[in-house]
Each structure stands twice: as structure tokens, then as C-alpha cells.
Write a protein that binds this DNA or RNA. Structure first.
Length: 660
RNA sequence: ACCGGAGUAGCUCAGCUGGUUAGAGCGUCGGAAUCAUAAUCCGUAGGUCGGGGGUUCAAGUCCCUCCUCCGGUACCA
């Protein structure tokens, strides 16, 4: 018997310094989960590992700031994020953590192999040392005067005032951010990994990767062009894994060297839990295992260059097979950030929306090729117009019909009913498979939803509500087909919205026995089988008021307001824009300047109402084209529901006056 | 600064190695239908593909340049 292809899938470890936000989900968790679920439906031999990344300066810093120990920080966020992922249906085989003793051991062992092989070398560099604290200070623990602009609170790595990149040694009058102590310069010996020596091997290895995303490949090629730099792999920090060599035992392993090894440790933990402590080797140490890293674009260099180089140096492990890196998910034009936007944190989002709705909304707008936009209106619209209207409605209309006309039992097959629908669905499933193989999840989802559209069309075209009156047997056959299709849809959708698939099985009163990819388009429910109780899969949603009030409450400063130049202007002419219901093209005079503004007020005013009026305009708005007509500003109006009134001044004012 | 990526219909996005009239979903407008969560199905309109040059019989797709946005590079993780 042929041995099955083995897969290891990883999502980038989550840094346990804050709550997971939707950007992480879009970048690495959700695509990996979708992929893994698809593979499992195919019966593939796949393990999905992830965990918390729990060492490094940032966590130490947070701990100091909050006045707690690093352990408290990581425990809090590890548990919280693990729960968020579970609630969202991310189906890890294991979600481990780098603070586990097993990881410490694995990382130290890995490090020691590199050292014993003579790969690492020592180099002395200069660092700032606080005698009061008796420790070396990492860049972000240092503050001082910027040598370029004189800003007094420049950080050790960069001046926020002038943007200059700095090294802590350049700072004038450096101070420890922790104690305020003035550090001294001290020599420190560090171990380095000779990344530059691996450039040729890496280049050759990467050149053979024909099916990688071009942006990932190009990015690496760019690195080769400038030449890889050797990297320090030790740090003078407290919060980390101690270097396993006596001479350096007061140092820790640099977190980016140690963290990726966490994928290996997590796999060990997994099989230890399963009582097969050596089985991890069958994955990590078999050359034909496919290792796939899912991650965001900020992580590419570590997974495509540094980690593979380390694995090459070590020699015992499989190298990554593919890195389907995603771009970023933005929210309201801004990128996700832990410091702002409460709504973007997974645990909060799940208080408002069902996990499948979030999964669907993100999957359908996944940043596969470029940064994408995400907003709550989209989520609501996709729920109402796609999940509820197309998928939910199909299931509901079939089940309700079956209940009222066929006593909630799968009706008998009929020889006259068209069965091409099953072929179409199988064809679609093949296409969807090929999208999954290429990591094209958005396309896969589009095609999946198209299957639900096909189902609705089949129902519409056969008009069972008419058949029931004049050809009951045929009607039964159509409904039988529809019920089989629901089961297929349950399978097809399960990588994306697994909770819904469970609900579908409940509605069908069916177990998981034939819930596999090869059963798509098959007739798996026998006539006479009694259906379960019907449930609305996706209730209609309204846009939460929260979002609106959050926007309203956002305060601005007087400086920000003064950026908006408001002026009075006189309406010289006004005409309707052809083919538009709402738009008028207005010519206005503001002082000596004439402007053309396109404004959406045609439903509320007639042109003659407006001509001669003194109105208020935004004078310095970037010009834009509306219906192909240039608009050089904006006319202010008050709007409440369907009522709209333009803003005018309280009489006796000329055009061209400033409004403030 | 340098390296990589992105700028395509009102909105959110596809467009693989250059090749017939630039695609999808939503939204818009119109029609059919009424079993269904007023949910479905069919059709319509809408783009000088960021600006400007160039190569080619042919460019959204290749080259140059400019503008805007994102990520990376600094022992930040």
C-alpha cells in the first residue's frame, strides 16, 4: 500500500503580548484552518500546529510596565488567545506554547547541535549596560537625546521625532527607561549564525520552488541581491531560554531563532499527548513531508530564509514546502493594531457575531494578493445577502417544503427528475479542489457559494410548488435531489464555516459517516429518512449602532479641525447631472474664485431653489470626479434620515468669507 | 535611503507566462416567480485599468519615470 502524503501545517506563532486581532486571523490562522479542514475531508495525513510565542523584550517590557512578572503576562494572553481560536473554530491539532519545558529542551538541543557542529561563531560588540540594574539594556529599554534633531525622548532604535534610525550608542545622554539609570558602554560577546554562508544554498533551494507566490520569491531574491547578513543568535536578556553552553550561560537564545523551533516542539507535545512520543519524527524527519507555513507578509524573511537556513545547518529536518504568505487586512483604511480599535480583537468581535460569519467575511475578502479592507457593514451585508439569502435560504426553503408536503421525510426518487445537477456540483467540487491546491481561498469560496446558487436555481427551475399540484412523484424526486444537495453543500462549506456544517447535519438528522469530499454530489440520504428539526442558519443582522457612536465619539483637536477650510459661496448656476438621480452640478463663486461642485442634493432641492443662495463649502477638499464630472469641493448640508437641508448663513454675508 | 508589493466599475476584489468587445460579488435599475429568513432566479447599466513616456501587429499585463499606500532592512519582536 502506498504511504500517504504527510503534511505539517503551521500558523505563525502568536506573540503572547496582547489579544489576537482579526489581522492575525486573516493572515495566518484562517487560511491555514481552511486548508487543513479541506485536506482532512480528503483523508490526508495532516497535522496542524501552532502556539504562543512567549519570550523576548516586548513581553519583558510589558511586564515591567504593568508591574507584573512576564509569566503573568504570557499566561493571561496564552489562555485568552487559545480560547479565541477555539471559539472561532480554528482546528489545531495542538496549540502549544514556547514556555513549555519541552520547548526549552528542544530549543536548547537545537542550538547546541549548531554550536557543536562549529557553525556558530563568537563576536564582540558594544552594548549599553546598567550597573544599577546589573543588566544589558535592549534598544527599546533606552531613551536619550537624538543626535540628529535634538529630540530628548528618542528611543534606542529610532527617533520618533525626525525618523532617523539610530543605534543606542549614538544617543546623547542615554538613560534606562526602567530605572532612569545612565548606562555605561560595555563589551559583550555574542554568538552569530553565519547566514551569509547559506545564501547560495538558499538561493538554489528557492529557485526550485516553482509554485510559490511570486511576491514571496521576489522578496527573497531581493535579499540575496543585497546579500544576507550574519545574525546574532544570543541576547543579553533575562526573559528567554538560556543558552545551553557554559561559556554563555548568562545569555538567552534570540527569540526569533528559538520561536520557529516551537513548531517542532509543539509537534512533539502533540504526539506525547497522543502517547506516541517518537511519532513526531515521522513528520519532521521524513524528507517527503510537506511543511507549509501560513503567515503574514511581515514574517516572510524568518520563514523563508532564516529558519530554513537554520534547518539546513542542523541537517535533520525537512524544509518548508510552501509559504502562502498573505498581505494585511486593514480596517477602515487603517491597519490593525493592538493599541487601537477595540472592535478588532477577536474575543470582542465574537461577542457580537457568530464565528462562522466572521470566518466567511474574512475568507471572502482575504488579503491573498494585496492589503484588503474590512468593515462591519461588509460583515452584515455578507451575512444577509449571501449566507442568509443564498445558502441559508436554500436549506430553509427545502426543509420547510419537505416538512409541509412530505411529512419531514426524504421523499422517493423519481426517474424523470434531472440529475445533471449532481454532475455540475461534482465539477464545481473539482474546481474548488484545484483552488485549494493553489491556496486560492477566495476563489474557492466564490465557487462554493456558486454551488448554493446552482442549488437555488435548480429549485426555481423545477418549480416544486407547481409540481406538487400536478405531478407529486416528480416533485418528490426534485426534493429528494435538493436534500442530497444540502448534504453536499454541508461538506463544501465546512472548511469555511464548520459550525454551520454541523447545524446542517443536525437539520438533516445525519451523522458524519459520509461527510467526506468524495461524497460531494452523491446521493447519501435514503428515501424515508426522517429529517431533524429545522433551524434558521443565519438570522438577518442589523449594523450595530455601536459602530456609529464610536465614530461620533472620536474626538479631534482644534488643529485637526483647522485643516478644513470652510468658506461661504454663492450659487451661480445649478443643473442636474444626466443619468443621475441625486447629483447636481453647481457653479459657485467664493470671493474671486469660481468653483464647480457636484453635490448629491437633487432629491431635496430644485435648481431654482438654490441659485443665488449663500451656502457653506469645504474649500480645500481634494477634487474628485463624480459621474465623470469634476467636483472641486463639497457643499455642506444637514441630513437626518431622508430629510436634507443645506447649510446657509444667517443673512447679510458675502461669498468668500471664512467659516470657522 | 534601499529592497519587495499594491494602486482596475459606486463599494470590496479577480485578471496565470502580453492576444478576441477588461471580469465577479455587493449596491443600482428592470423583469420572472411566490416554496422560502421580502429570501430566489434572469437581465441592464457602470471602467481612457494612479499620472506621463516608451517597446510591440497587439499592454491592465513588459520597460522608464513620477505620485500615493503597505511591508521589510536598524541586535523591535
Amino acid at each position: 500500500m502506498k504511504t500517504k502524503q504527510k503534511y505539517i501545517v503551521t500558523s505563525a506563532l502568536t506573540y503572547a503580548n496582547g489579544y489576537t486581532h482579526l489581522g492575525h486571523i486573516a493572515g495566518s490562522l484562517l487560511p491555514a484552518d481552511i486548508y487543513v479542514r479541506y485536506r482532512r475531508l480528503n483523508g490526508d495525513d495532516i497535522i496542524y500546529v501552532c502556539g504562543s510565542d512567549e519570550y523576548g523584550t516586548a513581553i519583558e517590557m510589558s511586564a515591567i510596565k504593568e508591574g507584573v512578572s512576564p509569566t503573568e503576562i504570557i499566561n493571561k494572553y496564552h489562555e485568552a488567545n487559545k480560547k479565541s481560536y477555539a471559539d472561532l473554530g480554528i482546528s489545531f491539532d495542538i496549540y502549544s506554547r514556547t514556555s513549555n519545558p519541552s520547548h526549552t529542551e528542544t530549543a536548547r538541543e537545537f542550538f547546541k547541535v549548531l554550536y557543536d557542529k562549529g557553525i556558530l561563531y563568537e563576536k564582540t560588540d558594544q552594548q549599553l549596560f546598567s550597573e544599577k540594574e546589573n543588566r544589558f539594556l535592549a534598544d527599546r529599554f533606552i531613551e536619550g537625546t537624538c543626535p540628529v534633531c535634538g529630540y530628548e525622548e528618542a528611543r534606542g532604535d529610532q527617533c520618533e521625532n525626525c525618523g532617523s534610525s539610530l543605534s543606542p550608542l549614538q544617543l546623547i545622554n542615554p538613560k534606562s527607561k526602567i530605572s532612569g539609570d545612565t548606562p555605561v558602554i560595555k563589551d559583550s560577546k555574542q554568538l552569530y549564525f553565519p547566514l551569509s554562508k547559506y545564501q547560495d544554498d538558499l538561493n538554489q533551494w528557492l529557485s526550485a520552488k516553482k509554485n510559490w507566490k511570486p511576491n514571496v520569491i521576489n522578496y527573497c531574491k531581493g535579499w540575496f541581491k543585497t546579500g544576507l547578513q550574519d545574525r546574532a543568535v544570543t541576547r543579553d536578556l533575562d526573559w528567554g531560554i538560556k543558552v545551553p553552553i557554559d561559556k554563555y550561560k548568562d545569555k538567552v537564545i534570540y527569540v526569533w531563532i528559538e520561536a520557529p523551533v516551537g513548531y517542532i516542539s509543539a509537534t512533539k507535545d502533540l504526539f506525547t499527548e497522543r502517547g506516541e512520543p517518537d511519532k513526531w519524527k515521522e513528520y519532521w524527519q521524513q524528507p517527503d513531508t510537506k511543511l507549509i507555513h501560513f503567515l503574514g507578509k511581515d514574517n516572510v524573511i524568518f520563514h523563508a530564509i532564516i529558519f530554513p537556513a537554520m534547518l539546513m545547518a542542523h541537517g535533520d529536518y525537512v524544509l518548508v514546502d510552501n509559504i502562502p504568505a498573505n498581505e494585511f487586512l486593514n480596517m477602515g483604511g487603517e491597519k490593525f493594531s493592538k493599541s487601537k480599535g477595540i472592535g478588532s480583537v477577536v474575543k470582542d468581535v465574537l461577542k457580537v457575531y457568530e464565528p462562522d460569519i466572521i470566518r466567511y467575511a474574512i475568507a471572502s475578502n482575504m488579503p491573498e494578493n494585496k492589503d484588503t479592507e474590512f468593515n462591519w457593514e461588509d460583515v452584515v451585508n455578507k451575512n444577509n445577502n449571501e449566507l442568509a439569502a443564498i445558502l441559508g435560504n436554500f436549506v430553509n426553503r427545502v426543509v420547510v417544503f419537505t416538512k409541509s408536503k412530505f411529512d419531514n421525510v426524504v421523499p422517493a426518487k423519481h426517474h424523470e427528475t434531472q440529475n445533471e445537477i449532481f454532475d455540475e456540483i461534482k465539477k464545481a467540487a473539482d474546481l474548488i479542489s484545484s483552488h485549494f491546491e493553489k491556496f486560492r481561498f477566495k476563489d474557492a469560496l466564490t465557487e462554493t457559494m456558486n454551488c448554493a446558487r446552482m442549488a437555488n436555481k435548480y429549485f426555481n427551475d423545477n418549480e416544486p410548488w407547481n409540481l406538487i399540484k400536478n405531478n407529486q412523484d416528480k416533485c418528490a424526486g426534485v426534493l429528494n435531489n435538493c436534500i442530497q444537495i444540502i448534504h453536499s453543500l454541508g461538506i463544501l462549506f465546512s472548511p469555511f464555516i464548520p459550525f454551520t456544517s454541523d447545524k446542517i447535519l443536525n437539520v438533516l438528522n445525519k451523522d458524519m459517516s459520509v461527510f467526506t469530499w468524495d461524497k460531494i454530489g452523491e446521493e447519501v440520504l435514503k428515501s424515508g429518512h426522517r429529517l431533524g428539526e429545522n433551524h434558521i442558519l443565519f438570522p438577518q443582522l442589523e449594523l450595530p449602532k455601536q459602530t456609529e457612536s464610536a465614530e461620533q465619539n472620536q474626538l479631534i483637536t482644534i488643529d485637526e479641525f483647522s485643516k478644513v477650510k470652510l468658506k461661504t459661496a454663492k450659487v451661480l448656476s445649478c443643473e442636474a447631472v444626466p443619468k443621475s438621480k441625486k447629483l447636481y452640478k453647481l457653479k459657485l463663486k467664493s470671493g474671486n474664485i469660481e468653483k464647480q461642485i457636484v453635490s448629491g442634493i437633487a432629491e431635496h432641492y430644485s435648481p431654482e431653489d438654490l441659485i443665488g443662495k449663500i451656502v457653506v463649502i469645504v474649500d480645500n477638499l481634494k477634487s474628485a470626479k463624480l459621474m465623470g464630472i469634476e467636483s472641486q469641493g463639497m457643499l455642506l448640508a444637514a441630513k437626518n434620515g431622508s430629510s436634507l437641508k443645506i447649510i446657509t448663513v444667517d443673512g447679510g454675508m458675502t461669498d468668500g468669507a471664512n467659516v470657522s
